[in-house]
């Protein structure tokens, strides 16, 4: 009898706990294979082909090896999109969400707000944007920021802050600020709710002891709140970075990559190359690069996190 068969028998065969476990996870694995791995591999396969959207009806186009990747490296628009994705779309919005999310969570968790019975109202107000679908959020903000009909310009003009309207959607000096504003407004509640949950799990005794030792608000924040909230901050930062880096919706709905190609990000470039230029293979190449960047990011991130936890 072979070793494997012996192990199988020892594990209880078809009635064993191990088999039972595999059976339970099988549907999840099957779903992952069909809806994640197969499309991902198909995307990688497409990136090695020259194929137009029209050709997808009949076949898989022509195999061109690494030609699409070579083209991408020479393409200045790739670097423009990469810069926009890294700096504006991800860096700026993630940084702001972490900072504002932390501040708002502290505020909502504060005893002062609870004392004034404003904690619940505050939470509801903060969470409202999360309930607004992104497409609705962008449409509303586009009208609010409109240079002639928008309420934002109207208020600024009434307050005497500006003489001429600001062209939030078309002026290259402010268009990214407008996009960031919408993303932060819509996505901030996730950071707030997670930080708030983290803050509420910190034992109150720690603060009481600190106060007995003469610690002020700032010392409590520095030596208790932030260190104990660090794991939550780390996970939130990781998750929203990946979600935002791959995001397509906000920029596409807001500017469609314009004016010109000023606000194109990697997500919109995938769409633009695949479904506007019809170059499915080249569009898939952008997708592969995005995946690789995020994989590297995740590896670096987790290895750093692991090292830190080992050192601790």
């Amino acid at each position: 009898m072979s070793g494997a068969r012996v192990r199988w028998r020892k594990a209880g065969g078809l009635h064993g706990a191990r088999f039972y476990g595999y059976t339970l996870v099988l549907p999840a694995i099957a779903l992952l294979i069909f809806f994640f791995f197969i499309p991902s591999f198909y995307n990688v396969e497409l990136s090695f082909h020259k194929i137009s959207l029209f050709e997808t009806v009949r076949g898989r186009g022509k195999f061109v090896g690494l030609e699409n990747f070579a083209k991408l490296i020479r393409d200045p628009e790739f670097y423009n999109a990469l810069k926009n994705t890294t700096f504006w779309l991800t860096g700026a919005t993630v940084g702001l969400r972490l900072l504002l999310g932390f501040v708002l969570a502290l505020l909502l968790n504060s005893t002062a707000l609870k004392r004034w019975r404003l904690a619940d109202v505050g939470r509801i107000l903060v969470f409202i944007p999360w309930g607004v679908p992104p497409v609705v959020a962008v449409t509303i903000w586009k009208w609010m920021l409109h240079s002639r009909y928008g309420v934002v310009n109207l208020i600024f003009q009434r307050l005497g802050l500006i003489q001429q309207p600001i062209f939030f959607l078309t002026d290259t000096s402010v268009v990214w600020i407008s996009i960031i504003l919408v993303i932060v407004w819509r996505e901030l509640p996730f950071a707030v709710v997670t930080f708030l949950a983290g803050l509420q799990s910190i034992p109150q005794e720690l603060y009481e002891v600190a106060r007995i030792d003469g610690a002020g608000w700032f010392h409590e924040l520095r030596y208790i709140t932030i260190p104990l909230l660090k794991p939550v901050i780390t996970i939130v930062a990781f998750m929203i970075t990946i979600w935002t880096f791959n995001n397509f919706v906000y920029v596409w709905l807001f500017t469609r990559g314009g004016p010109g190609n000023f606000t194109h990000v990697l997500g919109t470039k995938v769409y633009f190359e695949s479904f506007v230029n019809y170059k499915i293979g080249y569009g898939a190449t952008f997708g592969v690069i995005m995946t690789v960047i995020m994989m590297v990011f995740a590896l670096v991130y987790f290895s750093t996190l692991f090292k830190r936890s080992v050192n601790v």
């Binding site: 078309t170 002026d171 290259t172 314009g258 004016p259 010109g260 190609n261 000023f262 633009f272 506007v276 230029n277 019809y278």
Partner: peptide, 17 residues
Amino acid sequence: TMWALTNREFAAVYSGQ
């Protein structure tokens, strides 16, 4: 393709890009 390129380059001029 020509349509998309034309619109993009003209808008790049209008926006000062």
